[in-house]
Design a protein around this nucleic acid. Structure first.
Length: 423
RNA sequence: GGAGAAAUGGCAGAGUGGUCGAAUGCGGCAGUCUUGAAAACUGUUGAGGGUCACACCUCCGGGGGUUCGAAUCCCUCUUUCUCCGCCA
């Protein structure tokens, strides 16, 4: 969430930049500022009342000590009154703070100036494209047909065991998936990311820290018996590693990577676009995450983009990079680049990575700060991205690498798979 | 799951009703000394709100209560440790 001080200091700019998300934030911003003024007035009033009763309490203590009990008892009456006042003011203060937070939770992050205006994914700006789209042989198939033909992914079996959106990977399909995970992790650790294995269930505080709660709980599976949530992305546990921390400037940047399964309810999704591996309830993903000094975060974002590019280049998959427009930008992000791989047999682009700078938006909620060179505590910037989301990469490989003889394995993966063709 | 113990500043660890935002040690920072470093010595060193700056308010795991006054007493939740049970 945004900081009130920041909103106050940059009011017009905040409203102007939020307009890129096609929202008129004028009212809510004004309400925030007004509520904060109220809050401050009540706070001051409360502080003064408390100061008065603290002083009297001290006096009472002294009077008892010097044996003037009668005087002390007289003063007690006064503090009883003050206590009533304190109680009322505290209630008022809580109401204001709750009201203020309620508003703040609803304000999305302020887009970076680079974010193009626009409403839908049609307005996203393509910034880069690489890799040749292969010309497929006669009778080329979409990946779900290939999966069946070579018996490497069984969607029906998943239906039986769990339900739609929980595929079962078999034989070389399973091995290819594992190869990809290991390959991605190797690439990430080679680039300086430290590998972590994090929990796949998180508590409420963690869901809140990264912004899934309180609003977007519908996207997560909730284990009610223990009040835990299955993670929709490794971002949640990995970012919460840093919740409530005060780092030294020398600890920055901190870069971590991790593989986890991801669970998403995807309520309301249906149709051809969710066929096969396109959209699942459970999928695997390797995530990269950075905690950066504010001065360095955009450089770091570019670095992450370059890193993901390198992986796709090595895999020799046709892909493009989009700079998300205001209307498509995630709630918590200031600037996001989406990577899409071309699914040749489906003739459409599939999102396989999303790399974002959240600036201080998450750090504010997480209370993730560092001690700067002046000795002051300052919020860190957080960034994360996928490197990469497995199923759609797999779909891309299956479709783009299919030949009449079978599915070739990208060269860089052969050491990991131990075979070079699925036939 | 059962029984018991505990939770204090970056860390370790005192503190059982008022003078405690909290002794002491370590660590950090600054200085003295030194060609430089180490050692030694001296000083300094939590967070949030508030203020031009002070003042002032809040925070001793979370929440609630008793009291004029709570780190300290009571209730409750969470977590950790020890023992027992179960177990990959």
């Amino acid at each position: 969430m945004l900081q009130v001080a920041f909103i106050k200091e940059n009011k017009e700019d905040v409203i102007a930049r939020l307009a890129k998300r096609n929202i008129d934030a004028t009212k809510i911003i004004n309400d925030v500022i007004a509520l904060d003024e109220d809050r401050k007035a009540i706070q001051t009033n409360l502080d003064n009342t408390k100061a008065e009763s603290n002083a009297i309490s001290k006096e009472i203590g002294n009077l008892f000590k010097s044996g003037e009990a009668q005087k002390a008892n007289l003063l007690k009456e006064k503090t009883t009154q003050l206590k009533e006042v304190t109680k009322t003011l505290e209630q008022q203060l809580n109401d204001k703070v709750d009201g203020l937070n309620e508003l703040l939770y609803r304000i999305p992050n302020v887009p970076n100036p680079l974010v193009p205006a626009g409403n839908t994914d049609e307005d996203n700006e393509e910034t880069f494209r690489e890799g040749d789209i292969p010309t497929l042989h006669q009778g080329a198939l979409p990946h779900w047909e290939l999966a069946k033909k070579y018996d490497i992914i069984d969607f029906e079996l998943g239906n039986k065991i769990t339900g739609a959106g929980f595929p079962v990977y078999k034989g070389k399909g399973a091995r290819l998936q594992r190869a990809l995970i290991t390959y991605f992790l190797d690439k990430n650790t080679a680039a300086g990311y430290t590998e972590y294995q994090v929990p796949h269930l998180v508590n409420e505080a963690s869901g809140f820290g990264t912004g899934q709660l309180p609003d977007k709980e519908g996207q997560m599976y909730h284990v009610t018996a223990d009040n835990l949530y299955l993670i929709p992305t490794a971002e949640v546990p990995a970012t919460n590693i840093f919740r409530d921390s005060l780092l030294n400037e020398s600890d920055l940047p901190s870069a971590i990577t991790g593989y986890t399964p991801c669970f998403r309810r995807e309520a309301g999704s249906y149709g051809a676009h969710v066929r096969g591996l396109n959209r699942l309830h459970q999928f695997d993903k390797v995530e990269i995450l950075r905690v950066e000094h504010p001065d360095n975060s955009y450089k770091a974002l570019d670095g992450m983009v370059e890193h993901v590019k390198e992986i796709l280049k090595e895999l020799k998959l046709p892909y493009r990079i989009l700079r998300l427009c205001g209307g498509d930008l995630g709630f918590t992000s200031a600037l996001t680049y989406d990577f899409e791989v071309f699914s040749t047999a489906q003739d459409r682009w599939l999102e396989i990575s999303s790399v974002s700078n959240f600036e201080t938006f998450q750090a504010n909620r997480l209370k993730l700060r560092f001690k700067n060179s002046e000795g002051k505590n300052e919020l860190c910037h957080t960034l994360n991205g996928s490197s990469l989301a497995l199923p759609r990469v797999l779909a891309g490989i299956l479709e783009n690498y299919q030949t009449e003889d079978g599915i070739k394995i990208p060269e860089v993966l052969v050491p990991y798979t131990g075979f070079d063709i699925i036939s």
